[in-house]
Nucleic acid binder design. Sequence first.
DNA 1: GAGGAGACTTGGAAAAATCTTC
DNA 2: GAAGATTTTTCCAAGTCTCCTC
Length: 899
Amino acid sequence: MPSTGRGKGPAMISKALEQKVDREVPDGDEDQAADGIAVLDDVDMVDAVAPRGQRRARKPAVKEDTTDESDDDVPLTKRRKTVNGTPKKAVKESDSEDDIPLTKRRTSAVKKEVVTQHSDSDSDVPLTKKRAATNKRPLVKDESDDSDVPIAASAARKSLAKEKKDIEKAADVTAKKIRAAEKKKPAAKRVKKEESEDEVKPKAKPKAKANGTANGTKKGAKGKAVKDESPQEEEEEDEEYKWWLEQNNDNSVKWTTLSHNGVLFPPEYEPLPKHVKLYYDGKPVTLHPKAEEVAGFFGSMLNSEVNVGNPIFCANFFDDFQTVLKETGGAKDADGKKVNIKDFKKLDFTKIFEYYEADREAKRSRSAAEKKAAKAEKDAAEEKYLTCKLDGRTEKVGNFRVEPPGLFRGRGQHPKTGRVKQRVMPEQVTINIGKGEKVPSPPPGHNWAKVIHDNTVTWLATWKENINGNTKYVMLAATSSLKGMSDFKKFEKARELKKHIDRIRKDYQKDLVSKVMVDRQRATAMYFIDKLALRAGNEKGEDEADTVGCCSLRLEHITLSTTEEPFHVTFDFLGKDSIRYHDTVEVTEQVYKNLKIFEKRKSPEDQLFDRLNTPTLNAHLRSYMPGLTAKVFRTYNASWTMAQEIKLLEADKKNPLKKANVHEKILAYNEANRKVAILCNHQRTVGKAHDTQMEKLEYKVKEKKYKQYRIKHMMLKINPKLEKDKSFMADLNNLYKNVLTEKWIEQHHKDLVEGEKVKIQKKFEKENEKLEADGEKPLKDSELEDRLTAADDLEKQLAKEFKDPKKNIAVENANSTIEKCENNIAKLDESIQAIETQMIDKEANKTIALGTSKLNYIDPRITVMFCKKFELPIEKVFSKTLRDKFKWAIDSTDENWDF
DNA sequence: GAGGAGACTTGGAAAAATCTTC
DNA sequence: GAAGATTTTTCCAAGTCTCCTC
């Protein structure tokens, strides 16, 4: 596990060190550099903050520093040997003058994005000269694997970076405005402290809904999405608890009365049929049901390459499998002789996999009635767990099912991935319920671990899982009042940050030149958290995947640019869920210099911010605003960005979005949403079918254009005078030559003929099936041949059309008129536009997941405001679940609401 | 103040439900 | 109404942050 590199650098930053780094940094603007760096005297240094104790052992420094940096070293020990699965680089360059990285890192083209530097006019830090970012040598470390670097995301990130400056400026202006307005308010009316800010409830709308976009929900009605929903659904609204209309200022007590029915345990293990065996060294073996169950966990997921293809996963599984074998008497062959299972490679789970696959397939291919019956049975079994009574109200429970046993699917290189997640027994489960309420009965023959009555927490049941010792909880659903309130508070806190953001930014810009190392590190970290929306980056344990956030970044995760491209930093690290963050950003000269300073006397595996951790950072943030933490910046920046993007749409008077069609409105919303997702680095893997789906859509567009092309020829037949209409003919020629092309038309004709044949064949087969089912004679093959002549005729006709379209494309309908043809073309245009919009959206979303930001980061009131302002039904952007979750926002927001 | 436990939010993948097309 | 595509929901891992103990 990585060491922290804690306190390795000097506590103070000396003048000499500053000057040294000044000489090392790439050729920046001299004047600005002079302004930007506070040159400090050695003599006035006070060790304001001593290095904190080491969290973990560290590796010895590779090279002794001989400069005059203060010397508060702590011993260093070895750290993790790899980063992102690749061997670590050699220790970073020494402190000598030549430690400006001159090595050329790569020559191939690679993405590069630029986050514009902070350049507020009132900033304490001078502006850095901007360099043209294009046509320069790429800086990324690893050229072999850019596959997960989304091109679309890259472009969008660039565009977001361009806008970021304006977005920040707007934030600055807003903060000042808010404070000015507050000053004007009579003192008594001003909100005194943060708690009161926190507890402001969303204002309810005056009675009934303003339009049909806000949506109610029928209790228990499962998400029959969008189209079927009717306004009647809202009839039950009256019975609903609108917490946002109430005053509840107590944060510590979560409920007064609570009753529920406990948890639902997974079904017992059903042994495999006798003939389904695990094979070892080519021979079937018999296992104790407990061991067989574990073999089944692995066997049923053979198609999950991400897991079974991971050697750690396999090794961990095998380890646990061997343990369970030992405990249960081992494996036996057909003769009852013991088989010593010692080589994973000799295990063959195919039969088990096939069995489970067949089972899944059988489930899939059940008739509608069977599926319905099974669902009804499942629903009945689950019904009593679906809801609980909280303060007398019925609230939905979220995850009432106890997690079934299986293999732990830790992500990335989690050291425990593949370990057996054991079955949770009632004896491990603690129930939390109101005093005096009926305690749900544990399964027969069992007891609960404990029954408690803690109303300061929101969970109904809890247990510990065996893999990491993490606590699991049964909590209320996202639509519940408790979760709703907490969501609302989260967004209000982010809004509260609006008031302070200018001050905070100004302060961290100032601290970027602080002589106190911890302050300078904190300021630099805050710069990243604010500009790049990095996560805080808590410390992690030895037994977890090696992922990092801002505070836990190590030297090996950043690469500073060469002299050819000053002030660029390439980040390459695995963040939450082992999702790669790989980006080159332009930073201010001061930030760049700070990073150089922080790198001094450290190895690649040392902490970049060796004097900073998340509690320290958050403690500092709280001095600005109670409750402010690093996480709030992500919510704030996400919501603020979204709001600003929508303002841009509003400001576009040339193309008023209000007048656009639904597709365009959705696209505009998604584009704004996408910017937020990119900011937060929300990625997803490209679906297997993506390329095929795109090709299909492209084909669909061409098909429609081909139809237009034919209609135009028909129009020429109806009105030959059109031939003199230059624009008409130019359009037609363009369609033929540029859009469709001769080659495409030829292929399309073949496809049409082939399609016709298949259609005839299928129809024929179906008719025969029916005849046979009715006990009648099937049609003769000659009948099929007769019918297929229609396809031959089509082929001939199309060949003629291909040869001379003008002459041979005939008017298909005798009643056709020019007007009717034009209408048809217009209709086709409309549907082409819809497909093209879909394609743009699809391609842009290829690697970017919009869901997480919509669900967790963007204040839902911004979306509601957008929908109301641009007259877009909320169903188009919020699914049923989201509408339920954000009912408070839908109910309380009007078109003029501002984040 | 370090370290761990506990409580809660955030996150992508997989499964399930629904829609669309033929 | 079947098949395939797409969207929505569920699942549970993995974060953040607070609180408690020593």
